[in-house]
């Protein structure tokens, strides 16, 4: 089950020959993402287990909506991708989304390994914990 926004990214990635274009895309997605209000960058929104600082703010709804930010721009781009993967998903369907599988399709799954301290894994765990 993949929403249209994320399918669009998968389609876009198919055109890229090398990792540089993929990273450029990811970074751009991060820059295009709505700005997270400074007042929401509080400890309760902070995702632990990230080398850089990461905040995810979830809206109360029966569907999942979140905004986020990071001081690392690649991580910020990864948050943007996760927003496209997850936003609008009914909370009850969250368990059906396999983030690892989807990021593999983008060739970004190496960011999910435990050794990478950029915290993508921690972010996915935080999101899935709401389901």
């Amino acid at each position: 089950m993949i929403n249209n926004d994320f399918q669009q990214i998968i389609d876009d990635f198919d055109f890229f020959d090398d990792w540089e274009d993929k990273y450029r895309y990811v970074i751009e997605e991060g820059k295009k993402m709505p700005v997270l209000d400074e007042s929401l960058k509080v400890d309760s929104n902070k995702v632990n287990g990230c080398a850089s600082q990461v905040w995810l703010h979830f809206s109360n709804s029966d569907k999942l909506y979140f905004d986020g930010d990071s001081d690392a721009i690649i991580v910020k781009g990864l948050i943007a991708l996760l927003r496209k993967l997850y936003n609008g998903t009914p909370i009850k369907d969250l368990k059906n989304i396999d983030a690892l599988e989807n990021l593999k399709k983008l060739g970004l799954d190496d960011h999910l390994s435990a050794q990478r301290s950029n915290g993508l894994k921690a972010m996915v765990e935080r999101i899935q914990s709401l389901g």
Binding site: W19, E20, Y23, A51, S52, S70, D71, A72, I73, I74, V75, K76, S117, N118
Partner: peptide
Amino acid sequence: ENAGHAHDISTILDK
């Protein structure tokens, strides 16, 4: 100047 975090730089260098 443009990197938000040192990890941004090391990720690209690693590639």
